[in-house]
Design a protein around this nucleic acid. Structure first.
Lengths: 235, 235
DNA sequence: TTTTACTGACTGTCCGGTCAGTCACTATCA
DNA sequence: TGATAGTGACTGACCGGACAGTCAGTAAAA
């Protein structure tokens, strides 16, 4: 249960860093919203920066993203970035690493509960994916991982080791249990549990790339898929 | 100094001067163009460059790719690139544009033949996708489109307009025909034809990102999917 | 005062794009 | 036949702008 960067407080990025030269008169304090609270201050700054980084990286890609932009968006000076992250690379990697696990946690919880039917398990998974990723800014993170992954071998390895190599067996476990109860249509599905999540990836890409031309009916897509995988009342 | 990778096909240029592009009959004299290269030369160079560009762009991404590297890989000088393409952007766009159509053609041919059963149509499509894209270098192109798409709006628009907005109806047409024959399991599939190709995308990404850790059984994945979508002998 | 947090002008490097020059070749002339 | 001139293909050193990363300095906190 890692933080999962949330790009919500976009507003703070507005010109906060330039009021430096303009003496505001009686204002004794710095203009930044984070004035003191030494305790949470550092964590908050860090979050600001990661949040801005997500926005800029997902808009520009890793190479084209400029640290000046990230700093401006976070409302800090460029030098400050280096107080929190070693380099552009490290900032990028930490951004993706910290966002990694929420979906995995969800999957693990479903797999741990044997009372959930196969159909339900699949529907819940896809539904969570839709609500929490496809329909939020988190989808940019997935695209970032997919597109920049090859140039960050350590990152790809991390994802495989920490997420996928665990998620696939969990998925298989769910499917096996369901299969024993006769809830699964094809035995072969046990050999390729990845099929369960395939439409999730496809939906994500469609929305991200072509959503502006034609929205995909993600809910119907996922429901149809779940219905096809499992036995039980169709539509 | 440039090692001049290879003198290329100097030999072939001798002798027959077939560089006849103007079929104006037996032109006695030709003002201009004294040292015109052989007919295929230009196309060949272009292909060399595009080929090198694919390799470098898919390894580095658009922004990080260096034209010096592309030139070196193609065995030409950097300046030569500009004789064939206007800019780095144009080179990139043309690379992706030219790669677009083969799969669409395949789909169109299948859709045009009503004798093919729904199950067969889907299997053929997925099979072609596997053999021609997932298992070749072309898979990098899809990742490139995905990752750089947002920064090349014209390219995304091109793909939607020329490929997707035509492919989805074709797919729907195949599914409708199949549905009338009772070959399709769920009517709802007609609302989201994208589901047919979803595993193709997923397989491609898996292989590209994580294939080095764990190969995906793409054939089983596709067959299972096709079996689940259609009626007919499962096994 | 010392310590901590932050700043932003500056530097060195990198790379897209340019263009004056070379080369291989051919057509025409003597 | 050889000599001369013309052409397009190609080259690669160079230029200028952009940007990651640095650090001396400033401001607030302790």
């Amino acid at each position: 249960m890692p933080p999962a960067i949330e790009p919500k407080d976009r507003a703070t990025s507005a010109g906060s860093s330039k009021a430096k030269k303009a003496p505001d008169g009686p204002t004794p304090k710095r203009n930044g919203s984070a004035a003191r609270a030494p305790a949470g201050r550092k964590a908050q700054r860090r979050h600001q920066i990661l949040s801005a980084a997500l926005a800029v990286f997902s808009e520009q890609g890793f190479a084209a993203a400029r640290l000046d932009d990230i700093a401006a968006r976070a409302g800090v000076a460029k030098g400050t970035l280096y107080l929190y992250f070693e380099s552009k690379e490290m900032l990028f990697e930490e951004l993706l690493r910290e966002a990694a696990t929420p979906m995995y946690g969800r999957l693990a919880r479903i797999a741990a509960d044997p009372r959930i039917s196969g159909r339900d398990a699949i529907k819940r998974l896809l539904d969570a994916f839709r609500r929490e990723i496809v329909e939020t800014d988190a989808r940019h993170l997935v695209r970032l991982l997919l597109s920049e992954g090859p140039r960050f071998p350590a990152l790809t390895a991390f994802y495989y080791r920490e997420i996928l190599s665990r998620a696939v067996p969990l998925l298989r476990q769910i499917l096996e249990r369901a299969h024993e109860r006769g809830e699964i249509r094809s035995r072969k599905l046990l050999e390729v549990p990845q099929l369960v999540m395939a439409p999730a990836l496809a939906a994500l890409m469609w929305e991200d790339m072509f959503g502006r031309f034609e929205q995909l009916d993600v809910e119907t897509l996922f429901n149809t898929h779940a219905d096809l995988l499992t036995t039980g009342e169709d539509q």
